[in-house]
Design a protein around this nucleic acid. Structure first.
Lengths: 190, 190
DNA sequence: TCCTATCTTGAATGTTCGTTCAAGATAACC
DNA sequence: GGTTATCTTGAACGAACATTCAAGATAGGA
């Protein structure tokens, strides 16, 4: 997992994977069929790890939106750490393999959709708890939130200063959670 | 340029480049020193092309923010076309080569900073023309806008429906151009 | 027409890649 | 302790890669 995150799929050699796993080529091929099979397994593990981490951020002990803010701040810290093992394997694989491997693209897209769906449910919860206007569209908000996180992660790769990245995250959180529903008239201007 | 955009730098072979340029390996090495040199040249050409395209979108014949909306809608169309040659070579190179080639990362980061700077100047113009509150921070708005575009481009690779992507772009435009300055109290909650 | 300087060609090079497999090690069972 | 079944090893393989270079083509000047 971390090997693929550091160098990307294409540039990670069997020698790298040998070092990373402690297994010899024969064992890797026995267990995972191919380098690609190992990537699929890594994606599976990544999904499991991230799901678990996600749930830890939402124990329901504080306001949903407050927990969401902490979650977003955690992502900012990951970006700032400049540690490749804290990057998102899903977006990395998506950027590298889109339009080259339909099956992997499908798996990655499904995983990201699952993440987005979890966030949609958070907003639904927030509505029930009265933290969010029931007028807002939870699915749209979740899509906008994940789009913002994608943007944040890419922006972070240009090595901005910490407070700049945090400011962008704060703005994103504000736009998602505190913005009144936009007037239709403004949106249709073209 | 388009060859690198389709397969990424690493997966683009000399044979691909031979087909794409119509030159034989010897000529390519004579003119560009190496495959990496050809990428540098492609980045230079890309910058030139995109700068020219950018300027075409802002002739100053309409409101600055209206021209910006058209520009954003154009980006959405590029994303929806699913044509790899309409992707952003800069973000693609950034995602692939970050933390692997410092010089290229630097060049890409500079180019993206230049683009962001151009957008900052648009907001400054908009303030002068009275289209935008002088209270707003042009640099912050520009950063948020480019972050949104990064996010939009990544989101597009999960192949969402056209109206979903357009809705996200509309929201981004709204948040950047019509949002009142957020209250400090809301931003510092943590 | 010939000479020279520049450009083009594509086969050859050495390296590195993903992958395989037969030999060896280990463990489990009776 | 002997036999079998499973796992581990790492050398070896062909393919594909970026790169080189000597031979050939081209064009401009005299």
């Amino acid at each position: 997992m971390t090997a693929f995150m550091h160098k990307g799929y294409g540039k990670t050699s069997m020698q790298d994977l040998k070092k990373a796993t402690g297994l010899h080529p024969g064992s890797i091929y026995c267990a995972f069929d191919s380098k690609r099979g190992l990537l699929l397994a890594a994606l599976g593990q990544y999904k499991k790890d991230r799901n678990s981490e996600f749930n830890d951020f939402f124990p329901g002990k504080a306001a949903v939106l407050t927990e969401l803010k902490h979650y977003l701040d955690h992502i900012v810290q990951e970006c700032l750490s400049c540690d490749a093992s804290k990057a998102c394997l899903l977006t990395k694989a998506l950027n590298e393999l889109a339009d080259q491997d339909d099956e992997i693209q499908g798996i990655v897209t499904e995983n990201l959709a699952g993440w987005q769906q979890s966030i949609t449910m958070l907003f639904e919860q927030a509505k029930v708890k009265g933290e969010l206007s029931t007028q807002r569209d939870s699915e749209h908000l979740a899509r906008y939130f994940v789009m913002g996180v994608y943007g944040l992660r890419t922006f972070a790769q240009t090595h901005p200063k910490a407070h700049v990245l945090q400011q962008l995250a704060d703005q994103l959180y504000h736009d998602v959670c505190y913005e009144p529903a936009p007037k239709i008239a403004e949106q249709v201007v073209n």
